[in-house]
């Protein structure tokens, strides 16, 4: 069973750039709920004080944003205010360091994809390659 149910990338203006759910057999309703969760987690990110201000790269990791009944939400924010959010199953127990590494990898994937000259900044990522790469990255956690 995969631990990660959803990976989301949210732009500077809090608009979604990429949201993908990864749990198998997810219902439409739950899919929607994941969207809600990701969206709500932005509130938490905005409220999170501290690490955002420091310019240390490792502090881009925001940690556990909040637990829901079924999931845990982790966040990561780059200096350019791109937010990476993952939703993992509540039952899974993951080390912070592992999540950090995951986020780092995710960020480098994101950078590679958005460096594409045809990518319009702050627009939805529709690259299939990116999706595939993220999918490949999921089991690493």
């Amino acid at each position: 069973m995969k631990k990660i149910v959803c990976v989301a990338i949210v732009g500077k203006n809090n608009n979604p750039l990429f949201i993908q759910d990864f749990s198998s057999g997810i219902t439409e309703e739950n899919k929607l709920k994941l969207h809600y969760i990701v969206h709500c987690s932005l509130d938490i990110i905005e409220d999170k004080p501290g690490p955002v201000k420091k310019n240390v790269p490792s502090d881009m990791y925001l940690g556990l944003l909040y637990p829901t009944e079924d999931y845990k939400v982790y966040g990561y924010m780059t200096n350019t205010k791109i937010k990476f959010i993952i939703v993992v199953l509540d039952t899974s127990d993951i080390k912070d360091s592992d999540i950090k590494i995951f986020f780092k990898r995710l960020q480098s994937l994101f950078i590679n994809t958005t460096s594409n000259p045809f990518y319009k900044r702050n627009s939805k990522i529709e690259s299939k390659k990116f999706l595939q790469e993220v999918t490949n990255l999921i089991p690493s956690l």
Partner: peptide, 10 residues
Amino acid sequence: AYRREKWWTL
């Protein structure tokens, strides 16, 4: 709210 945030799915 969602339109403002451009969360199209929601």
